[in-house]
Design a protein around this nucleic acid. Structure first.
Lengths: 339, 339
DNA sequence: AACTCGCTGACAACCGGTTGCCATTCGATG
DNA sequence: CATCGAATGGCAACCGGTTGTCAGCGAGTT
């Protein structure tokens, strides 16, 4: 088996190919990017030479001259939050399949980092996917007006979005708790700038009113495992028998804290998380949580963005996509004490 | 508070600045990148104009003309493996601090994807950090000869490397088990192409011989949680009372499987993991594991790479860096049955 | 045979910067 | 006052592609 020619020295350019074939560089360019524009014989000669020289186009140059970078920025607030792992993998796979490069940036939960990153990405990418933006509505809408964008878990007018959300699932979660006899429930809130958290709280109050149970709002808490300690303490102090928690990270932190304090989960306190992240199935006890197809959300976000970039398809661009979620009952919920 | 000028329409270029200031574009370029080369008055005029026009350089153009992309590729075999989260965060933070962009690629545990990614990155980045390469030694060395590279957890002659390794820690792990009375121990091996796994096994056999205990090699297993089931079954079947596991992912999978099979950890079987990933502290039981400063490893890898890129500093480039690791004892290890 | 038209390839401008080289200016020095 | 060199700014080539335009050529039409 003949190994492919190993490129040695400087990578080949279209000029090298042109020289080798005795044609102009522009002909080489056309032979490779718009083959119909070139005679079959010439084209084949050029393609053979390209293979022989192990030619691969210089993406910088391509970007500069064509204006398209074949790169897409993906912004997440915290790269170490397992929630984003699956999202990132989803975007990565889908982008790669479409021939795009993923530029992953951790915005460190900061709106300023997010804004400056967006500004920079405006020139170095064809579009961006922004997960859980910490920007305010105006800034986000303004940014979206200047470059193709799809948000994840953030709904702003005029900006295409993938919502992995749980208003409907919140009903399932609360009904699950109610069916177990809980009548005093706390919502452990996420960051104030998180629209997901606000949306979940809104859904929850709505359902609670319908069902005639009490739900109180505790927090806000940072979406980190460490925050679970304060959240657990607040929950215990509030006297509720069950918590619905903004995300699994905090929920897992609560589990640990409650164990330290000798409060049994689920016997003394039931916990429902959100997202079903890595770890939710093997923590102790395994977490009852609202599962969402996160990786799929990443894929959908990419599809929506690519549809914006290449509006060839007939139909208009889908501007909002809601991912279905469902309750996964594990070991962190049971009957209310005394039931 | 005056908001910064919002860039509207096409982003400003040095030509716009040049026109505004009545100078040549080259002067603008110098004023911004080699300020000493330009008269103070002119420079300040240009800088003011740059701010006013909200100028940010086009990185593509910069890359094309200067040959440096200010981007660094980071290759990991599996982006959803929590081990890499911290590594990625480490590289991301350090790269951003140095003004570089991180190009993250998931090579899907495939040597082919890895090779083609490296070839592509050769032109679109200034250097690469390759974690847990699945490439053979020759290919890796060849790739490293063609572009600046630092490997993580992979030691190949002539390629600068950060080794988060555990030969010394393996001693601690085995001695820990021996002190608990275990005399029959299994090593649950990772992928055959993983040098880390081979290195750990080598260290283990060495120590085992010194101490006069039996250690057997089981596997190989894919570095995924699901592999834990097979690994657990193999361990049980082999009759050992303790396992040292290639990584925490497999170890956690084993925990789940053993629980399903009614085998108690640690009473019936002790488990020691490697890496202390997210989840190792809250699984059930919490995992005794070899902890490593993974995020720091990422930072060090970046530092070593940047030292290669800008060899200004006096001293030679450090070509190998070993991160210290230590045993973290949690709940998955205890005395051997019958002791 | 003259004319038109499509196919094909070359030329050159351009994307937005960087950089080598040269001309001018100016102050300092002999 | 002539000379020299440093400081400064401009010109133009270049990085590696893309793309608009045009000329040459051959085939088809009348």
């Amino acid at each position: 088996m003949a190994s492919p020619p190993v490129s040695v020295g400087r990578p080949a350019t279209i000029h090298d190919i042109a020289a080798l074939c005795g044609v102009a560089p522009s002909t080489v360019s056309r032979a490779l990017s718009t083959p119909d524009r070139v005679n079959v014989r010439t084209r084949e000669r050029i393609q053979a030479a390209a293979v022989e020289l192990n030619y691969t186009p210089n993406s910088q140059a391509k970007a500069l001259s064509s204006g398209r970078t074949a790169a897409v920025g993906v912004l997440v607030p915290d790269i170490t939050n397992p929630f984003y792992f699956d999202l990132i993998r989803g975007t990565q796979l889908q982008l790669k399949a479409a021939g795009y490069t993923q530029l992953l940036v951790d915005t460190e939960e900061s709106d300023e980092v997010e804004a400056s990153t967006l500004e920079q990405l405006r020139k170095s990418s064809d579009g961006v996917i922004v997960a859980a933006s910490r920007l305010n509505d105006e800034s986000l809408a303004a940014a979206a007006a200047r470059m193709p964008m799809v948000t994840v878990n953030r709904d702003v007018d005029g900006v295409p979005a993938v919502i992995i959300d749980t208003p409907s699932a919140m009903t399932q979660a609360l009904d699950h708790l109610i069916s177990l006899g809980h009548i005093s429930v706390a919502y452990i809130a996420g960051p104030v700038v998180s629209q997901s958290s606000a949306r979940r709280w809104a859904a929850l109050t709505q359902v609670a009113e319908d069902r005639g149970v009490q739900v109180r709002n505790l927090g806000p808490f940072a979406p980190k495992k460490q925050s679970g300690a304060a959240a657990a303490d607040a929950a215990v102090h509030s006297g509720v028998t069950a918590c619905i928690v903004f995300n699994d990270l905090i929920a897992i932190g609560m589990l640990q804290r409650l164990r330290e304090r000798g409060i049994r989960v689920p016997e003394d306190m039931s916990i429902v998380g959100c997202d079903d992240i890595f770890g939710a199935d093997f923590c102790n006890p395994p977490l009852t949580t609202l599962s969402s197809p996160i990786e799929q959300a990443g894929r959908v976000a990419v599809s929506m963005l690519l549809a914006q970039l290449n509006p060839l398809g007939g139909g208009g661009v889908r501007s909002r996509s809601v991912m279905p979620t469902h309750l996964t009952v594990r070991g962190s919920t049971t009957s209310a004490p005394g039931n």
